[in-house]
Amino acid sequence: MNWNMLIFLYLAFAMSFSSFLAIISRNPVHAVLWVLVMILHQAFLLYTLGSEFLTAVQIIVYAGAVLVLFLFVVYMINLRKEERWKVFVRRSSYGFIIFLFFLYFFFKNLAFLTALGPAFKAQLPYDLSQGSNLLWMARYLYSHYLFQFEVIGCILLVVIFGAVFLLRKLKEVG
């Protein structure tokens, strides 16, 4: 049991537990904050997986932008007085039965996935002695994945338009 393992176990436990709390908490503000906890832990997990750049992105984009957006919306909608209402949908038990069966077969079938990892053959290999992880990412991002990169940019642009369009003056919508 080395330090790496200990850190991983802590992170895994914390992420699982905080996300579990997120989906059962009654108050949406709490739920979003628990997701925030999970995401911060995940950022650290990405650091242990060797990518400091992704750690930064995770914190800036996820924690800094997305989750703040969630919080804004929660405050805007202002749900506190409805807190005493039910958390889960009605007749959840039926769904839960399906869910359990699903879990069973899911894990049965996906056992092979765990064996896949080292079998992957690197298509775009990187070598940390030739430069940092960030450098390698940049190299491939602006050559091999350039098109996808542009597409993501377009998608984000469209999202901005979409959000503005959806939330323009509601009188016009009807």
């Binding site: 949908v89 039926y94 769904g95 069966f101 049965k108």
Partner: peptide, 22 residues
């Protein structure tokens, strides 16, 4: 008309597929 129920049915379909695979 409830989104969650639709999700359950999607899951049920996936479950059937997994059973067949299994």
């Amino acid at each position: 008309g409830v989104v969650n129920y639709y999700n359950w049915f999607i899951l049920l379909g996936l479950l059937i597929y997994l059973v067949i695979m299994y």
